[in-house]
Design a protein around this nucleic acid. Structure first.
Lengths: 122, 122
DNA sequence: CGGCATCCTTGGAGATACTG
DNA sequence: CAGTATCTCCAAGGATGCCG
């Protein structure tokens, strides 16, 4: 794939631009959910609906971080937020279709981890 | 593992410690390969052996970053480095077993991306 | 060609405190 | 309980330059 015409004289590092933006869907996927917390939180929501503080406990994220990541995930359509204004307010987070579609990824990750994480001597 | 006794009066955010370190293998896996470049590079190496500059082109990472991530990946046993001291030096990177074992993850990621990335309107 | 040393900018993320 | 607002810190990562 001669994607790089060698004719380019100004072949600086800054010239790569965004040619890697859509190399393949994996890259795109990574760009969207490639951060630690996003993965951790989404994986945590596989169990089903969870509350803010539940997630805080299970993931270990701070309120600040959790709030932000949750916000981002909702914006990108990975999760859905349902608020109940009853007693002292309760908001539940749950995976959307888009988010649930990531389950195979987590399964694969889980399987890999089971196979290699232990023997690596963390 | 009741690491968090609800009876704790000093329930500060800093008390969570590492109870999330081994919640499940997914978290562990994410800790190891949860960064953008690691995923991107590993995915790129699925095609087979590649040279430094090949990776630089295809991933769009700078030499500095690439070098570092590659180094980390090698340390963790994901990839293998073969250097040929011929003419102007050539080093090839290739996935190890451990690294190849991640392929299912990338496949899942790829499939997900194909399904959802386009319709999301990047 | 491969890749390390340096500088510098950004944002991810924790601590803490405060509000509805 | 569920956030939001700040402040701060540090690592990730890009740009450049240089060297084997």
């Amino acid at each position: 794939m001669a994607t790089q015409p060698p004719s380019a004289d100004t072949e600086k590092e800054s010239d790569v631009e965004q040619q890697n933006a859509d190399v393949c869907t994996v890259v795109g996927a990574v760009e969207e959910v490639g951060s630690k917390w996003k993965l951790v939180i989404l994986n945590d929501l596989r169990d089903g609906e969870k509350r803010f503080n539940e997630l805080k406990r299970s993931t270990g994220a701070s309120s600040y971080t959790l709030s932000r990541v949750l916000d981002g995930l909702e914006e990108n359509g990975f999760i859905d937020n349902r608020k109940e204004l009853e007693s002292p307010v309760a908001s539940y987070y749950i995976l959307t279709e888009k988010g649930s579609a990531l389950c195979p990824v987590f399964d694969a990750l889980d399987e890999w981890g089971a196979d290699w994480l232990e023997s690596t001597g963390e």
